[in-house]
Every structure is written in C-alpha cells, then in structure tokens.
Design a binder for these strands. Structure first.
Lengths: 338, 338
DNA sequence: GTGAAAGCGCTAACAC
DNA sequence: GTGTTAGCGCTTTCAC
C-alpha cells in the first residue's frame, strides 16, 4: 500500500480510502490511485486488515466429516445464509473426534473467525465447562444441557418416535433400530433410539434387544452389514428405523442383498432428509428435520452473538420443527419395479 | 501477550518463545509464563502471527458446490492429505460461477492462504490470462490449456470412452449420453462427450443427436428427467453414459419410474466413483478417476509451489489414472433383486 | 479532500 | 537464557 501511495503520489491513507470505496475522495485522485494499484498489481492484505479491525467477517463451521451427505448439505445451506448476512464461511473437519472438536473452539478464538458453528458428535454434558468461553459459538446437533452456549437441536427423539409410529401404522410388528454405538450418553444415536422405544411402548409392542444394532460408524457399508446380520438372525423382522439416511440407504442395500424386498418384506425409514434418499430406488421415507431452518437459525443466533455481546443474554436452545416424508421405502408393498 | 508478559514478569519475547515451544527457556520461566497465560485466559492471535510471518499454513479449496457428493468426498481427501503436509484447509463455495471462481483467486492472494486449489467448472481457455498470477494455484478438473498454473486433470475423455465401450461390450447399441449444457468449450461435459463419441465411432455405431441430452444442472433431478424424456421419445435405447455418478443415480431413478429395469432394459454407467454409487440399488458401474490420487497430487503440487518459488518451473499438467468399476447397473440383465 | 502519527499483536535479529 | 528494537500492512483519529 505504501508502494501504491508513492507511485500515485498520495498518502497511504488515501489509498486505503479508495480501496474501501470511501466517499470524500476527489475523482481525479481516485483514478490516479486505481491506476497505480493496477500497474503494481496491488492486493489488500486481509491479514493486516483483520489484525487492525479485530474481526474477520468470517465464521468457522466445524463438522465431523464433510463428505457425509448430511453435513455437506448442511454446510452448503449455512454458507448461503451466512453470505446473506455478510459473512464468509470456512469449513473445517473434526473427524468426529472429541479432541478436534475442542480444538476447533480453541482455534476459533485465535482471531481467525468472528464466531463458530460447531456440529458436535463427540462432546457430551461432561464437556460443558469447556464450552464456557466468551466467544460466539453455536452448537449444532444434540443438546448438551446447561452448556453456556446457544444450541440448535434436531428433533431427534420426536422424529424417531414419529418414524417408528409410521412403521407401526404400516403394519410392522418386529421393527429393528440400526443406530450408533453409544446408547447411554446424550447423542444422536441415543436420542433417536429413545424415540424408537417410546413409539414401541406407546403401541404396546415388545422391545427386543436383538433387534437393536449398534454400528461403530454411521455409513452405508455399516448399514448394509446390519441388514445382513438381521436377515440372518431375525427372520421375522419387517421394519427398520435407521439412525440416519446414509445408514438407511446402506440398510436398503443390505436387505436387497439378502434377497428381500423393500418395502415388500422390510420397510425402512431414515432420518435427515438428504438428497440421495429422494432419488434412491426405492425412494427413502425419512424424518425431515428442516435443515434450512436449522442453518438459518444457527447463522442467525451466531450473528446475533457476534453483533451483540458474546456472553450477554441467556443461551438459547431451539429445536427445529420436523415432518415425516413418506416415500417408497415404507410404501404399500410395491417393491422396486418388477 | 503484553499482558501475559507483565503478569509473568518477563518480556513479550519470552512469552512468544514459550507459546511456540522454543528451546532455551528455563523451566521455571516456562512455568511462570504458562501460569500467567492460564490465569489470563490468553490465546495467541493468529491474525497477528500470520501478518508477521507472511504465511498462514492454510490452503484454500474452492469448489463449485460442497454438497455435490463428488466435491464433498474430494474435499475430505484433500483435507486429509493437506493435514499430513502440515496445512489446514479452508473450503469455500463458488456456486460454479465464473465470477466467484475468479474471486476465489483474487481473495486467496489477499494473504489469507498460502495457496489455492481451485476446482473450476466455469473457467475456460479464455480466462487463461487471468490465471497468470504469482501465487501458488492448482487447478482441478478440466484442463485449461496453456494456463500458467499447475493442473490436475481427470481422465475425462479416456474414461468416458472406456465407459461407452463397456456398454457396447455388454451388447448395447442405442446408447444415450446424458451430459452438461456446453459441448463446445473445454469442460467436463464436452470432454466426456468426446469420449462417448470416440467409442461409438470405434465400434462403428451411428451417432444419433436425439440420444444426447444436455442438462442445465448436474444433479439427480435432472438425470431423472433426462431418463423420462428418453423413455418417452427413444423407445429403443438400451444404455446411458451419464456425465457424473450423481446424474447417473438420477437416471436410474428415472428409468425405474418409466417402468423399465436397470440393467435389464437399460444399462447405466456413471463417472466419478462416489460412495453412493456403491450402495445404490442397483449398484452403479462407474469410471473411477482415482480421487485419492487426485487429492494427493493436488496437495503435493501446491505445497511444492508454496515451498519453492510460486512462479518458478514450468506448470505441471498431470492426469490421474483411471479404472472402470463394473457393478450391477451394467450387469448381466439381472435387475434389482426379484 | 488529504495526510501524519500511532498501534493492532506478533516475532526475527541481535544485544546482553 | 532473556530483553530490546523494529516492523509486518492496514486503518482510526485528528490535524490541516
């Protein structure tokens, strides 16, 4: 900038004014400066500007794995909403590791972002003290009760209850739940599992441990394996509630591999409403947690904290509305086109 | 840092030495400083460090849309390789807009990143002069010939040729190509289309314009529509080469909706080898462009430029090796499990 | 309408 | 082993 100023015969301050489109710069001066900038191939140094300004107009988004369709789609929505609010978004991957999720918070406070949206899967209530930071943070995903930060929660239990009830309404009586590893803590797997049990209880259906499959990883391969295991060991099963759509699509695959039909023999319902489920064969019935609502709300809360005082005001805890989207995977028994 | 220094009764320099784990700091001093840091809740200001250092140990990755599975999976791989090389990755979305792709370059030069991996879809040979920057950039995707930056290209034409030849080998004679809008420029759609035509020519099959569908957007919905249109207008078609797996999955859906079977009536082959294709029903035959090779190479080239001189050395132009992964969608006529 | 001075928080280079 | 000096590139403040 010094160089440009010298080349244009003005002060650095004037160059700064031109760069930032500030008024009160004479047209002739502006032109001179722009020419000099062009000639020297000048670019503002954002790092310096950030240092000076103390903010970056950038928000960080930390997700467990950005190649999981749910997070990829959510990230895209968050980018859209944040951009509308005048913020850039920077996406980072935590690998679903507790250490890295905490790291994301620590790093964010290092003045690179004005705030952080953290999609937790590995943090639990025990970590609530570590979230006691005076930096704008919004937690996405499960609720960590009493944590001093804003939360946007998914309707995990209610949604899973509705999904299970839907299967029961379709006539299923031996409904399996394919879920995550940890059913004790407060996490997506356990909360959705709770909804599943609620619905069974409400319908006075017995709970059968053998129908609960705990997957170490929530991916299609694991879902397919779960279906294979169920097909081998539980011949009478007629429905599956999968903890996520990604897992559900794997389950459908596994059911098919076992020589059974979806929904003819086994009905399958997922959770998340990812795009792939809409176009799968059969298309996937799913709980739609209103991801756009979630993205909008997360950005809204974070930007509010950034603009106001980070620590001021009690933490908000909101849950998105949900709907059940009925598609072929729980349909009237018509399987994939004969 | 000043505050910490004062609280610990040392100079800022010593604090800096402690923060950066530098040797030659007496243990007692180190402890004193760490205590002061803890007491004051001190965090390094990375913005300041970056300004001072002139580099950020961060590379930017600009993709058209991060919710397209291909890019999401590629981003995850790039993150992994970059981390192994000691760099953080920041992902941004360009929306597949020419302006935003150019913006990504412009922004990157603003000292936020040490280098940029740009996945282009909207830039063409005409933009080559705009890429003439003395900043480490690696272009991913189609080749922009003569551009003065490193390229990691996909085996677009060769892969599509192999995919088409595979269908021909399976007995298909009226093979449709479902591709992108622009078949004139140098882009994924046109290059893969060229491979399709090559294979038809080599097999002495006629080229039929009516079998070429140009989609405005490369998503499953468009793929499904394309299949519907083909089913309506071209009853004799027996194969589809889809420009991407995402489109191919939509095509499979559309074929099924039209009351036809995959692969019984129509065989479908995609391109990209995304995870969803492996678990789809039927599973998707696809061209595997070795995405891990691409990610590793892109990171490798970029880091090389960053560590060496950005402009030094002729631009490298590499093409990943590919393979054809044969799955059910082009199988022996056995459709989805009966 | 333009400029001079000062400082954001950090660290390389050198002095002690 | 620790401190001093200086400056990365920008912008806020206030003077002209």
């Amino acid at each position: 900038m010094q160089d440009v100023a010298r080349a244009a015969g003005v002060s650095p301050m004037t160059v700064s004014n031109v760069v930032n489109n500030r008024p009160h710069v004479r047209e002739a001066t502006r032109v001179k400066v722009l020419e000099a900038m062009d000639r020297l191939g000048y670019r503002v140094n954002i790092a310096a500007r950030n240092l000076r300004a103390g903010r970056t107009q950038t928000i960080g988004l930390a997700v467990p794995e950005m190649d999981r369709p749910y997070f990829a789609e959510l990230a895209a929505r968050i980018v859209r909403h944040a951009r509308a609010a005048g913020y850039r978004v920077v996406v980072e991957q935590t690998g679903a590791l507790r250490e890295e999720e905490l790291d994301a918070i620590a790093w964010s406070r290092n003045s690179l972002y004005d705030g952080l949206i953290l999609s937790t899967v590995a943090l639990g209530p025990d970590d609530r003290d570590l979230l006691r930071v005076d930096f704008p943070v919004v937690i996405l995903g499960e609720r960590i009760f009493d944590a001093p930060v804003d939360h946007v929660a998914m309707p995990n239990t209610d949604g899973a209850r509705a999904a299970t009830a839907h299967l029961i309404g379709r006539g299923c009586r031996r409904i399996a739940m394919v879920t995550g590893p940890d059913l004790e803590g407060t996490n997506v797997a356990s909360l959705r599992y709770a909804g599943y049990r609620d619905a069974l209880r409400a319908a006075e259906l017995p709970h059968d441990e053998r129908l609960v499959v705990r997957l170490p990883r929530l991916d299609p391969a694991s879902g397919a394996e779960a279906a294979a295991r169920l097909a081998r060991a539980e011949p009478g099963w007629d429905g599956v509630v999968a903890v996520t759509d990604t897992v559900a699509l794997g389950v459908v695959r596994g059911v098919t591999d076992a020589g059974l039909r979806v929904p003819g023999d086994v009905r399958v319902v997922g959770f998340d409403n990812i795009e792939a489920g809409r176009f799968a064969v059969p298309s996937l019935t799913t709980v739609d947690p209103d991801n756009d609502w979630i993205a909008a709300r997360a950005v809204g809360l974070l930007v509010g904290r950034i603009r106001g005082d980070a620590t001021q005001g009690r933490p908000r805890d909101v849950v998105s509305p949900f709907g059940l989207i009925e598609r072929e995977s729980t349909g009237r028994g018509r399987g994939p086109a004969v």
